[in-house]
């Protein structure tokens, strides 16, 4: 497996923020909110994080792999196809759709 870029599995991500906080170049950001799940009549409804946005800025990423290592839920993984070139730096900020 070549380390050309990183893929996100949004179903596996629990929005735990570990990768965001460990990334040395501060190039990951995410937004999430909480929702109740389970039996609405339960006395203490369970709360889960729901991922709204997840962005990696490939213009800042140095491909160190710390985020892949640190993710406890295997939501991040190396993928072999490189990030396509863009004419505009904003095009290097990939959201959930591009990171899938």
């Amino acid at each position: 497996m070549s380390h050309a870029r990183i893929a996100l599995d949004p179903q596996a991500c629990t929005s735990c923020m570990l990768c965001v906080r460990e990334c040395p170049t501060w190039c990951i950001s995410l937004q999430a909110h909480q929702e109740h799940v389970g039996d609405p009549g339960a006395r203490r409804p369970r709360t889960v994080n729901v991922l709204d946005a997840f962005t990696i800025d490939w213009g800042l990423c140095m491909y160190c792999g710390i985020c892949v290592e640190v993710c406890p839920f295997d939501a991040l993984a190396w993928r072999p196809d490189p990030v396509p070139a863009t004419a505009d730096p904003a095009g290097l900020r990939h959201g959930i759709a591009e990171l899938r």
Partner: peptide, 17 residues
């Protein structure tokens, strides 16, 4: 730069029933 790590999902809790 603002550190992205200060965001916290718990800051956006579900609405109270």
């Amino acid at each position: 730069a603002a550190w992205p790590g200060t965001a916290d999902p718990a800051d956006r809790p579900p609405p109270a029933p």
